[in-house]
């Protein structure tokens, strides 16, 4: 029983980071209709920026939670402005291709600059683990686990509320729902797109801050995060932030359960099995949103 509790908690920790990355992908996709394949690269850069701040510059860890999202958000908005906006004149497919190459470029630039295998970032919080008695056994919970799970979930929920209830979120949802209608309300496509990329980038950056201690910084991080975040987003319906949040947590827990009770090889396969099952059962994802355009 204690083991099962630990497995679930471990899965939630992974899942919370997936969820954060997935929410970023969904925000960008919802508002701009662009599937951002560079998102993993942004998460990796978030983790890298954390490394620079915390390890190289020896700033206190909490500053990373403030600086990194702003930095990666600005970078994402800058990439949208300088690279993707000109491509958008061609068509959406070109933009999506653009993000694929952008993602590769981010990873490879990092690989060129940092030839070492892996940059390690210490945990944001450390201390003796907590033992929770369950029956005759004890479940062990580390402070870092609580911090990462709780922190990432809190940020994800804050993102949800922001998107749902703030003026900024309303402008992105309007743009997502009907681009002409949104423009006729007075929303500038450019400005809303930049805002969406900033928000998505900031969430990616935060996912990087949370992921850095447990995953380390390496180009591999970009690849593994983008794969998991995509699966999470698709499970959730791809256009629902709540769906991405639940999808991320579900994926993390299912992955960890299969690692614990099947095998570590099953862990990497299970995410795609989960994806297929969800798509077979509910092709529109667990949390579909209204898709009709013309009313």
């Amino acid at each position: 029983m204690a083991e099962f509790v630990m497995v679930i908690l471990g899965g939630l920790k992974f899942g919370a980071v997936y969820a954060l990355a997935a929410i970023g992908i969904v925000v960008i996709h919802k508002a701009t209709r662009t599937v951002n394949f560079a998102h993993g690269g942004l998460v990796m850069l978030g983790a890298f920026a954390t490394y620079v701040l915390v390890v190289d510059w020896k700033w206190p860890y909490w500053t990373a939670y403030l600086v990194v999202p702003l930095l990666i958000g600005a970078l994402a908005a800058g990439l949208e402005l300088s690279i993707l906006r000109p491509l958008r004149r061609a068509d959406l497919f070109t933009v999506v291709l653009g993000t694929i190459f952008l993602g590769t470029a981010l990873s490879e630039a990092f690989r060129l600059a940092y030839n070492t295998e892996l940059l390690a970032v210490p945990a944001a919080i450390s201390g003796a683990p907590i033992f929770i008695d369950i029956g005759e056994d004890a479940a062990i919970v580390t402070l870092e686990q609580i911090w990462v799970t709780g922190g990432a979930l809190a940020v994800g929920l804050a993102g949800l509320f922001l998107f749902r209830y703030s003026t900024l979120g309303r402008s992105m949802r309007a743009m997502a729902s009907n681009i002409r209608g949104a423009q006729l309300c007075g929303y500038s496509v450019e400005r809303v797109y930049a805002t969406a990329w900033f928000t998505g980038g900031a969430l990616a950056g935060l996912a990087g801050v949370f992921a850095a201690p447990s995953r380390g910084v390496s180009p591999e991080l970009a690849v593994s995060i983008i794969a998991s975040a995509f699966v999470a987003a698709v499970i959730g319906g791809f256009d629902s932030l709540a769906g991405a949040l639940i999808g991320g947590l579900l994926l993390g827990v299912v992955e960890t359960l299969s690692a614990a009770y099947v095998s570590s090889a099953a862990k990497s396969a299970i995410s795609f099995v989960l994806l297929f099952l969800v798509l077979l059962w509910r092709p529109e994802g667990l949390f579909p949103e209204a898709k009709r355009r013309h009313v």
Binding site: S214, E220, A259, A260, V262
Partner: peptide, 18 residues
């Protein structure tokens, strides 16, 4: 056993803890 460059050892560690 684990694959090269693994970052997650859930399955292996749980088995050892068990």
């Amino acid at each position: 056993e684990f694959d090269q460059d693994s970052r997650d050892f859930t399955s292996q560690l749980i088995s050892m803890a068990r």
